Amino acid sequence: MKRTTKVGLGLLAAWAIHDLEEVWTMSATSKAISGKLPKNAPIPAGLRRAGMSQKHVRIGIGFMALVMSTAAVLGVRSEGRAPFFRAALLAFGIHGFGHLALTAAFRQYTSGVATAPTIVIPFWLWARKELAKEGLTDLNWTTALIALSCLSLLPAVHALLYKILKE
């Protein structure tokens, strides 16, 4: 199996393992921390009061499954050269550090923090090293801008789901 194929399929596998943790824990964690968010944070009152429902979490993670599956397929097909694949990989790695920061800020368990340092970040570092052996990097303007767009998808998806589900 080609190195780039392993990285592409690995991204989907690492994401799936990480998001299983989130499926199991995000609703309860969001309820526990939503009231602790800064008062000026643009969070709807219902979300601030009750956190995300399990239905909200499942649909949101399902949407991100489409994004990550697309990235993985593009990664395999392009042998790691697709900018969207490399941007998704970069966003995945950076978001792992976000889980650690969120947990430190709230000084309690937050959804995804168990697999961020054990799956997400180690996979990202390994994948970057493997792609570098092929002369590929995720550190350029194109992938950085796409990665920022990917990271901004998360709050946008949650806001849209909140409006649609009216929970």
Score class of each variant (00 low, 15 high):
Gly62Ile: 10
Thr118Gly: 00
Thr137Cys: 10
Ala65Pro: 06
Lys133Cys: 07
Phe97Arg: 01
Ala88Cys: 09
Gln108Glu: 15
Thr103Gln: 13
Gly60Tyr: 02
Gly62Gln: 11
Leu66Pro: 11
Val76Phe: 03
Ser53Trp: 11
Thr137Leu: 08
His158Met: 06
Asn140Gln: 12
Pro155Asp: 01
Lys133Ser: 14
Ala71Pro: 08
Lys166Asp: 14
Ser53Met: 11
Ala104Asp: 13
Leu139Ala: 10
Ala71Val: 07
Glu79Met: 05
Gly60Met: 04
Gly80Lys: 08
Leu165Met: 10
Ala147Lys: 07
Ser149Gly: 15
Ile61Ser: 05
Leu131Trp: 12
Lys129Ile: 12
Ile61Glu: 08
Ala65Leu: 12
Asp138Gln: 12
Val113Trp: 03
Ser53Arg: 13
Phe123Pro: 00
Thr118Gln: 00
Val57Met: 07
Leu139Arg: 15
Thr143Asp: 09
Val76Cys: 02
Gly98Arg: 00
Phe106Glu: 12
Met68Trp: 03
Val120Pro: 00
Ala144Arg: 14
Gly93Glu: 02
His95Gly: 01
Ala105Lys: 14
Lys129Leu: 08
Phe97Val: 09
Pro155Glu: 00
Phe92Gly: 00
Ala156Val: 15
Asp138Tyr: 04
Ser152Lys: 05
Val73Phe: 06
Leu151Phe: 01
Gly93His: 01
Val76Lys: 04
Gly112Trp: 02
His158Phe: 04
Ala72Phe: 06
Leu131Cys: 08
Val73Thr: 10
Leu161Glu: 06
Arg81Thr: 14
Leu100Met: 13
Tyr109Ala: 03
Gly80Glu: 09
Ala101Cys: 06
Ala104Tyr: 15
Pro155Lys: 01
Leu89Ser: 02
Ala72Tyr: 07
Leu165Asn: 08
Leu165Gln: 11
Lys166Glu: 13
Ala87Lys: 06
Ile94Glu: 01
Ala65Lys: 10
Val113Tyr: 02
Gly135His: 13
Ile146Thr: 05
Ala132Asp: 13
